[in-house]
């Protein structure tokens, strides 16, 4: 089975966000694999081990993205592809990303494509479904269970806490939700092996794309931090009195009761 994983690097969840000149300052920030993409990598490895085939991890990014790709290889993926857009593209959006991936997949025979259900930075959740539509294959988002038998696929999908049981078939794109699996940590031998696994680097002209083909449909005109929240009031006195005061404050001052 040809399995592909779409990976994005994101800020470490511990990072504080610093905005400078309407842009997020990323100098010195720690990057990680988007946490939802880790579920996708883990699931890809599990499915390959069960059904055979190969796992290829793809990211669109810059030189530094190699680090996250190597981590995915160390977890157990077989091959990695970096589509480096650093020199060609200033600002892309989800349209851009999906178009680039479409071009990449044009001559591939993908049976299964996995992605995170959302990236924790921009949180659009668009790229997976957009790509599936461009490739003309079905997709299921926010999956929590995946069983494949031949071409038949059975899925459990999280829908705002309810679970849908879905039947579909390969080729297929899925996006992964928490609860699907427990992503493994790279083992030491895994890390050693990862160094020798193939990592292909492409630019958009290798995919026969011009900048115009992938020009963003939306534009970010400003980025800013929310107003700093002032520390509030810690109530005092007997617990009974604190509770009374709290209810009064919520009802009369804040009008939320």
């Amino acid at each position: 089975m040809n399995i592909y994983v779409l990976l994005k690097k994101t800020f470490d969840t511990e990072e504080k966000i610093v905005v400078q000149d309407s842009r997020i300052e990323d100098e010195g920030a720690e990057f990680i694999i988007n946490p939802y993409d880790e579920y996708a990598i883990e699931e890809a490895i599990v499915q390959r081990d069960a059904h055979g085939g190969e796992v290829t991890v793809i990211t669109i990014g810059d030189e530094a993205s190699e680090k996250q790709l190597r981590t995915a290889l160390a977890m157990g993926a077989d091959k990695a592809v970096l589509i480096n857009t650093e020199e060609d593209l200033e600002d892309g959006d989800q349209f851009t990303t999906a178009k680039i991936l479409e071009a990449y997949f044009e001559d591939k025979e993908a049976d299964l494509i996995l992605a995170g259900n959302v990236a924790i930075d921009e949180a659009s959740g668009q790229v997976g479904p957009r790509l599936a539509e461009l490739l003309g294959i079905p997709y299921v988002t926010t999956i929590t269970k995946l069983s494949i038998e031949g071409d038949a696929v059975s899925i459990e999908k999280d829908v705002e806490g309810d679970v849908e049981i879905i039947e579909t078939s390969l080729p297929l794109l899925v996006t992964c939700q928490q609860g699907l699996n427990e992503p493994r940590y790279p083992s030491l031998p895994g890390i050693m092996k990862a160094k020798k696994k193939p990592l292909e680097e492409l630019e958009i002209d290798d995919l026969d794309l011009e900048e115009d083909d992938v020009e963003a449909k939306t534009k970010t005109i400003d980025i800013y931090l929310p107003p700093e929240k002032e520390a509030g009031k810690v109530l005092e006195g007997e617990v009974e009195d604190q509770v009374k005061e709290l209810v009064t404050l919520l009802r009369n001052d804040k009008k939320v009761l």
């Binding site: 905005v19 997020i24 949180a123 020009e215 400003d222 931090l225």
Partner: peptide, 18 residues
């Protein structure tokens, strides 16, 4: 102009359509 949270609400962005 459309305002949406990014980084789970650690920041906000203003967006427009091309």
């Amino acid at each position: 102009v459309y305002i949406r949270p990014i980084y789970s609400g650690k920041a906000f962005e203003k967006k427009t359509f091309e």
